[in-house]
Write a protein that binds this DNA or RNA. Sequence first.
DNA 1: TCTGGGGTCCTAGGACCC
DNA 2: TCTGGGGTCCTAGGACCC
Length: 420
Amino acid sequence: MIALCDVNNFYVSCERVFNPALDNRPVIVLSNNDGCAVARSNEVKSLGIKMGAPLHQIQDLVEQHNIAVFSSNYVLYGDMSQRVADIVEQYSDQTEVYSIDELFILFQGFDHLNLTNHCQKMVQQIHQWLGLPVCVGLAPSKTLAKVANHYAKKLNIDGRVLNLSHEYYIKQALEHLPVNELWGIGRRLSEQLHQMGIRTALELRNADIKTMRKRFSVVMERTILELRGIACIDFDADPEKKKQLICSRSFANKSSDFELIKQAVAYHVTRACASLRQQESVAQCLTVFIKTNPFSQKDPQYSNSITIQLPQASDFTGHFLAAASHALKKIYKPGYLYKKAGIMLTNLSDKGTLQTDLFSPDINSPKNSQLMQAMDCINDRFGKGKLKSAREGFGQQWAMKSERKSKEFTTRWDNLLSIR
DNA sequence: TCTGGGGTCCTAGGACCC
DNA sequence: TCTGGGGTCCTAGGACCC
């Protein structure tokens, strides 16, 4: 059996843990740059505010219903997420962190246990230790576990665990589930399924598998098999290293200032290279991209990207900074108001198996390596960005808006909550 | 005026090989 | 008019996820 453990309205729930006045009050957490609503409390959902709604479009509702609005606080959410995972690991040694608020749990050799009870205990412990509400769906496949989790939340199941292992209940659940709510069936696919007359998850499960494979792809075939209780999406306890790393941010305000964009790009390169070293990879390709605000009706639009290949894969920030600065000069056009810049590292490989070139000098000197190590060490100990490249500048004039962020309650001594 | 930031997997088609 | 039968690798684009 596979369980999906998912924290309800995760970001909102994290805010509520440290601010009980938010209980029973509508709460929203915004995306980066205070742009869109990316987490909503149940009260907000029932007001009809959609996932991803831009804040400026729902401003009236916010005032009307006295909705509490927060900037996203990833340090807090990341730490809380880790704490959830730590607890879950006590209940099975096979867990797969699927996202910041979800884990799959594999229960193998647990036949002696009543899994529903086992998971209920886990839910209780998470609630007691962290104050976070989680729901668990149990089923023979990941896709069905997702379905079970969906109903555990929706039906407000006692004990917050729904076990979907009996054929009768599986059918019941799928019969009432619109096909577009399935994991792996997005907007495009459900449109096409609708055209074929397939509207519920049960109808999809009963569809002819060969026809569906032909018409769609192996992905669709797997979804159907999973709905039939045949697990075919791998359980991946320790995910491979990232195959690409992207770092980008929108600017607080649009700008055509080359120097400002250059500093933002340097900042992104620095962050990406630190992640690269952390997972002990090297990258050979660097992509730099910039774009104007696509939502603007009146500003002339421009976006471009360029990919540069290093002579050798590397993890030395300096090489990527130099390449990025070169790349940016090529794509930057004056006169446009830019809103976003970012970089991407691709063609990643293991640092241990790094191939050097027989005919050109090695660009990865031990000196560079030591320098990066020292830098990472200092930044780990004294905080991200304590030591940085001069190219990043000091002002960070482009820095995103984050005007309503709560404190780092769990990771900074001086942000510790005091109780009177 | 204001609209996020990450990721993954699969397929078709082109270029190439013998 | 007739023009084989296998392969591999790479990339762009499309779909999905949170």
